[in-house]
Design a protein around this nucleic acid. Sequence first.
DNA 1: CAGCTTCAAGTCAGTCGCTGTCATCACTAC
DNA 2: GTAGTGATGACAGCGACTGACTTGAAGCTG
Lengths: 197, 197
Amino acid sequence: MVRWEPGAAERLQKAALELFATRGFEQTTATEIAQSVGLTERTFFRHFSDKREVLFYGQHLLVQAFLAGVDTAPPGASPIEIVASALRSGASFFPDERRPYSRTRQSVIDQNPALKERERHKLAGLATTLADALRARGVDELAATLAAQAGVTVFGIAFAQWIREDEQRSLADIAAEVLRELLTLTARATASGRGPQ
Amino acid sequence: MVRWEPGAAERLQKAALELFATRGFEQTTATEIAQSVGLTERTFFRHFSDKREVLFYGQHLLVQAFLAGVDTAPPGASPIEIVASALRSGASFFPDERRPYSRTRQSVIDQNPALKERERHKLAGLATTLADALRARGVDELAATLAAQAGVTVFGIAFAQWIREDEQRSLADIAAEVLRELLTLTARATASGRGPQ
DNA sequence: CAGCTTCAAGTCAGTCGCTGTCATCACTAC
DNA sequence: GTAGTGATGACAGCGACTGACTTGAAGCTG
């Protein structure tokens, strides 16, 4: 007989999301999550650095998807084109089947400021990693940071739209449209003269 | 004789920054901060919703500066032009005399992940507020969100540069340059054809 | 197969962030 | 002078998180 079942982190993550979705994040203690899968609080904190982190388990895979998109961009691509490629790749991490799951998870996050804070922190980390990858491709510091930040912003807006109840388009399609809108917006400003005033 | 000195929040904020800068954020307890100015822990938490918040006391003034910049933008201004105006106004919130203070404060924040998280959260809040102001001027939803996010990104990058040891330019000047770089970057992508690939 | 090692998990005690509740007391208004 | 008002103190308590130590099944070794 085994002393412990494998996949403790996965079980904890699943149980946590369910409890958060029903009782709420703050109304659920780490002890409760752990006990619901036959573990102790101490074990919970061995797998997750803090209580919020359990909702972001697996995030590194999304980061990897973005980086893969950077790699597949053609050699001569401009920073924005590289970012567009990263966005396509990152978007593929969320196939349409995943929408229901993403919706419940996001509703939990949206209902708690501390979780929104963590989510933004994760996106900021993604932007930093993306910028590093751009720099590794020869893009200069400032351009890399700006392009990466823009890409992550576009992704965030597109994701929020993808999750809406009546939305049918794929995340990749939405992201492409949002990116185009950003380019249009800035192009308009560039065309209309030097600075405002 | 008065029972308590006025300006408790200000005194707490000042003492907290000093303690954080010397001992470190995690090595300083809320009780210590409070006692160092003759108050109790309970009073600390009456003035600040949590321990991190003490470092962001007065942030609403920065937000107001950005909003004032939105208001002073001319009637026909494009979203990006409005944001440029908001940036100029926001930058004026950090005159050069304030650089030393900003540097020590930022070094505290940079040394603690939880504080960086809060800082990003605050910037995200600023972006949301800015987007609201743009929408109030008739800018449509998506454009408002994109322009506001871009503006806050530019501000963040410019601020980080402004704080560097060898930096001499004003925050407003740096921000203007970063914004121009962003426009150049996106313009290049727009000019080079439709989407990549 | 006995003995050793490994390693995920359990146990326990403790710190600290944060909250609810009630008391205090200078000051103010009537 | 009596009744608020408002910032603070005192105190008890919960839950997040940590460090140090223990436990026991599984695998390895001879």
